[in-house]
């Protein structure tokens, strides 16, 4: 978004010093560069937060906060190609912090249940139950495994891209996903048997 400055007729220049002009120009340039990435990255921040928080409203708050924080420190980011990786980390951390605030926890889960009812009326009871169990099992996963699994489940993320986002080798991503799936399977095996037996 371009910023314009209104100059009144008769006045030669707005009352801004040279440093202020420079500052304004710097700010505008940073903002323009940041906004170019916004459309692409806001969804990523939201999905990472949503994967942790299980609630759209909270995830939206966290995504907004992450992007504002990212913008504040954007000028300090040397390698702008690392922006998405950086944003994933900010968003994941903030989402975990919010999840840990025990006050909101119950409200969030109740809201999540209502949301599930609204958004997927056609889903079977068993499938909804399984998803709840899966989300609880995911909460118990170590953070590194959870983030790798979440990113791998997101549309359009190859193993190589996840490796870039997490700043780890592809082999590490593979092993994290493998162990995360294995741990989930251990925890969910009984529920699959229950649901298939019904």
């Amino acid at each position: 978004m371009q910023e314009l400055i209104l100059i009144e007729p008769g006045s030669t220049a707005p009352k801004l010093g040279k440093t202020e002009w420079t500052r304004e120009a710097e700010h505008a340039a940073i903002r323009s560069e940041f906004e170019e990435r916004l459309a692409d990255s806001s969804g990523l921040a939201f999905r990472v937060a949503r994967g942790v928080l299980k609630n759209d409203a909270d995830a939206e708050d966290v995504a907004q906060e992450s992007l504002i924080r990212a913008f504040r420190k954007f000028a300090r980011l040397r390698d702008r190609n690392r922006f998405r990786a950086w944003l994933v980390r900010i968003s994941f951390r903030l989402a975990l912090d919010r999840l840990r605030s025990s006050k909101c926890r119950e409200l969030r889960e109740a809201e999540w249940m209502r949301e599930q009812e609204r958004s997927r009326p056609a889903n079977s009871q068993a499938s909804r139950e399984f998803q709840q169990h899966l989300e609880r099992a995911m909460e118990e996963l170590p953070e590194k495994l959870r983030l790798a699994l979440l990113l791998s489940a997101m549309e359009g993320h190859s193993l190589e891209e996840i490796a870039v986002l997490l700043s780890v080798p592809v082999g590490t991503v593979k092993s994290r996903i493998f162990f995360a799936r294995k741990q989930l399977a251990e925890k969910l095996r009984c529920f699959v048997t229950l649901t298939t037996n019904r």
Partner: peptide
Amino acid sequence: AIDSSLHTVANPEIPATLIPRI
């Protein structure tokens, strides 16, 4: 089943209000 549920969890619709809010 795990992958299917994970896909649902990891790909929610992005709210239209998000970018205007930012």
